[in-house]
Design a protein around this nucleic acid. Structure first.
Length: 454
RNA sequence: GGGCGCGUAGCUCAAUUGGCAGAGCAAGUGACUCUUAAUCACUAGGUUGCAGGUUCGAUUCCUGCCGCGCUCACCA
């Protein structure tokens, strides 16, 4: 007998597991191999569907297209000595039709013993049913693997969000459309690499376990190296290592990889998330804005097979071009209350910015609390963040940030209270953050000392 | 970490004012050779998240804990 965790004893799972093991034994006695090494299919289900989706019943009958297919059994509909089943493979579903007089007693016994979740192979020819569904008329069935656990209920499907995210494989079986998420993500990553490579960037991997963590201000995860007996941090950013590589002469360098931040989670925030970070020597933030626009456009086109528009909720977002506003311009442009909309000049005047802050707090449900001793720049930054950020639906670069919140960026040559930095937003969310990287070590030190005094 | 909400069969959900814990699907047996949530009949399946409290009696009311969701804060 199989050793089982105690909690399973006499439970539904135990009963089901026992039944399934018994079915495997019975199939073996019938002459089936319980876990065969391979199955030589002639077509993927996707190939059959794309190739024969337009073929009529008469054309299929005349051609008698022979196929060997395989996949996971989703549903079984039997009536007496014949029946149907749907197979899932490669994200596509195809129906099979099994008759005892066509497959014989042994294979039909296998069909009768099928459970949702089993993996089988089927050999036969294509036809269309009375309801005109493309179907394999099976002449031989092969057993490939048994599902030992119950599949999600077929009508409601798998809905429990916890299970969907913790057991993505189940989600993929029960909700085949989530496969598209994986496919699109893969296309996005590939397109980013392609575009970066086309511009002469070199991909590297830098340490994920770091003795000192840097490059951002998030809280890190801590871990321990036994042989060295030292604590290490999971990185919160690759920044410092990538900068060192530019020092060594990798003038265009990037990394696409995980970062780990020990912070709160939400649908936007994952404690381990993938980030693209790249550095380009001899360029400033305007070059980066141009390149970012191209990166976004090329990536969207690759993910959407040539289109640059993406449907996100109720918004159709077009990545063809990147709108650009300075932060001050954005506060004017995207100010949510018509009666108090500022002019550009107002944002250079502390008294008028303070008035705008009051106007916002009168109109908005959520109030802005200004930190003690906040500068004009910080006030404008907070106004932008609270009043305007969520209103940036189409891809938009917001440039020129206040120096207080940007310790790693070069100052604007004509106004040192502001720095050459931009962030890209779409659908009200931040997509990117970039700047003319500060490379004056004395200024860098001054900034850190200023920040540590605050 | 704060606030709000949820937790009942493997899954999706019921259960009147506090009064015998139920249905559909999934599972087992049987019938059925064009179904697609197949259908029909029968069978089995429960420590109502956990621990206390109130009560003659708790799935229901109260307290604490655990898990999950939403949201705010932190953060990108």
């Amino acid at each position: 007998m199989i050793a089982l965790p105690r909690r399973l004893c006499l439970s539904f799972e135990y009963e089901l597991l026992s039944q399934r093991y018994q079915k495997i034994r019975q199939l073996e006695e019938l002459g089936f191999t319980p876990y065969p090494h391979k199955f030589a299919f002639t077509h993927t289900l996707g190939e059959i569907i794309s190739r024969y989706t337009g073929a009529t019943a008469e054309e299929l009958a005349a051609a008698r297209v022979g196929v060997r297919v395989c996949g996971r059994v989703l549903t079984v509909r039997r009536q007496g000595r014949a029946g149907f089943a749907h197979l899932l493979e490669g994200g596509e579903k195809l129906q099979i039709y099994v008759r005892q007089d066509a497959v014989g007693y042994k294979d039909f016994t296998l069909y009768k013993m099928l459970d949702a979740g089993d993996i089988i192979g089927a050999e036969g020819y294509l036809f269309r049913t009375k309801t005109n569904e493309l179907t394999v008329h099976v002449e031989r069935l092969e057993f490939l693997s048994k599902a030992l656990l119950a599949m999600p209920e077929k009508w409601h499907g798998l809905q429990d969000v916890e299970i969907r995210y913790r057991q993505r494989y189940l989600d993929l079986i029960a909700n085949p459309e989530v496969r598209q998420v994986f496919v699109t993500r893969s296309k996005i990553i590939a397109a980013l690499r392609r575009t970066l490579e086309a511009h002469g960037f070199i991909e590297v991997e830098t340490p994920m376990m770091q003795p000192l963590y840097g490059g951002a201000i998030a809280k890190p995860f801590r871990t321990h190296h036994n042989a060295l007996d030292i604590d290490l941090y999971l990185r919160i950013a690759p920044e410092l290592y990538l900068k060192r590589l530019t020092v060594g002469g990798l003038d265009r360098v990037y990394e696409i990889n995980r970062n780990f931040r020990n912070e709160g989670t939400s649908f936007k925030y994952n404690p381990e998330f993938t980030m693209l970070e790249f550095y380009q020597a001899y360029a400033d933030y305007r070059d980066l804005m141009d390149f970012s626009e191209e990166l976004l456009r090329e990536t969207a086109a690759a993910a959407r097979d040539g289109e640059t528009t993406v449907q996100y909720g109720e918004h159709s977002i077009d990545f063809k071009r990147l709108a650009r506003y300075s932060m001050k311009e954005a506060v004017v442009e995207f100010w949510p209350y018509a009666s108090t909309r500022p002019k550009l000049d107002d944002l250079g005047d502390p008294a008028r910015v303070a008035g705008l802050m009051e106007a916002y707090n009168r109109s908005a449900e959520e109030k802005i609390v200004l930190p003690a001793g906040a500068s004009l720049g910080e006030s404008v930054g907070l106004l932008f963040e609270h009043a305007c950020e969520s209103r940036l639906i189409q891809p938009t670069a917001i440039y020129d940030h206040p120096v207080e919140v940007s310790p790693l960026s070069k100052n604007k040559p004509d106004d040192p209270a502001w720095v050459e930095r931009f962030e890209i937003f779409a659908a009200g969310m931040e997509l990117a953050n970039a700047y003319s990287e500060l490379n004056d070590p004395q200024e860098q030190r001054r900034r850190f000392e200023m920040a540590s005094r605050r």
